[in-house]
């Protein structure tokens, strides 16, 4: 760090054998904002020095498999998504473009989520398996993917009665849209296009190419209700026929 600061915790970090990489990491630099009084009490004890710096491990050093204890603040999540939407809004013209952009950003998350979920499955279960049938894949998205991203399973999975290639995932109270009020002039916009992107990426990653879109289907009971519409490609249905 370029500046000098007579902070007790700072001096411990610099004299110990920590590499300079840790000084640049977000967790280590957060000591700049910590209250001086509380942590300095512990720094006088030799044994607790190590524990004091290891209470919050570097985000890159944490075990990928520990999903349960690592909770994220819903407010931080909401503010981050709000910024994403504002960022996107500045760069688009029209609702279609808006939704496409959000979809693309979600897609990038979806590819990573799929990778992570499969990795976690493989390390935890003795008989890891790869889903090749459509229904188990859709169920996996509805439960596992939703739990990993939003902390709860989606409220419903439905098959379209009109078209054989269409399926719908229903979320009554989507976490992303909980605090969002879309203005009237662009009321068709569904910010859950981001979620649709995640779903599209997971399906793509498992080789079930599809077009996924989000639609507001609000009713009196659930004003934020959203339907994620999955329109599968023809090849998927043909393969499904062969596997029967």
């Amino acid at each position: 760090m370029a500046y000098t600061q007579p902070h007790p915790r700072q001096s411990i970090l610099s004299t110990s054998s920590h590499s300079s990489v840790e000084h640049l990491s977000p967790t280590a630099s957060s000591t700049r904002f910590s209250l001086p009084a509380a942590p300095s009490i512990h720094t006088t004890l030799g044994s607790s020095r190590q524990t004091a710096t290891r209470v919050v491990p570097n985000i890159y050093d944490r075990n990928l498999n520990k999903a349960r204890s690592s909770e994220v603040s819903a407010s931080a999540y909401a503010f981050l998504f709000s910024e994403i939407v504002q960022y996107t809004q500045k760069r688009v013209s029209g609702i279609n473009d808006f939704e496409r952009r959000l979809n693309t950003m979600g897609y990038r998350i979806g590819t990573r989520i799929l990778e992570l979920l499969i990795w976690r499955n493989e390390s935890s279960s003795k008989t890891p398996k790869r889903e090749i049938r459509l229904l188990p894949v859709l169920l996996m998205i509805q439960s596992q993917v939703w739990k990993a991203v939003f902390g709860k399973a989606a409220d419903g999975l439905e098959k379209s009665s009109a078209n054989v290639d269409e399926y719908m995932i229903i979320d009554n109270d989507p976490l992303l849209e909980r605090h969002i009020s879309v203005p009237r002039d662009i009321s068709q916009l569904s910010c859950s296009s981001f979620t649709a992107g995640i779903v599209e990426a997971v399906l793509d990653g498992l080789n079930f190419p599809a077009r996924v879109t989000a639609h507001n289907t609000a009713n009196a009971q659930y004003p934020n209700k959203v339907t994620i519409l999955i329109k599968l490609e023809k090849s998927v249905l043909e393969r499904e026929e062969l596997l029967k």
Binding site: S75, V85, S181
Partner: peptide
């Protein structure tokens, strides 16, 4: 919750949020 976390609200501007 409903105003500051809403991406369609501009800070310091009139509040128009259904939520």
């Amino acid at each position: 919750d409903a105003v500051m976390k809403n991406p369609f609200h501009t800070p310091e501007m009139p509040v128009r949020s259904e939520g």
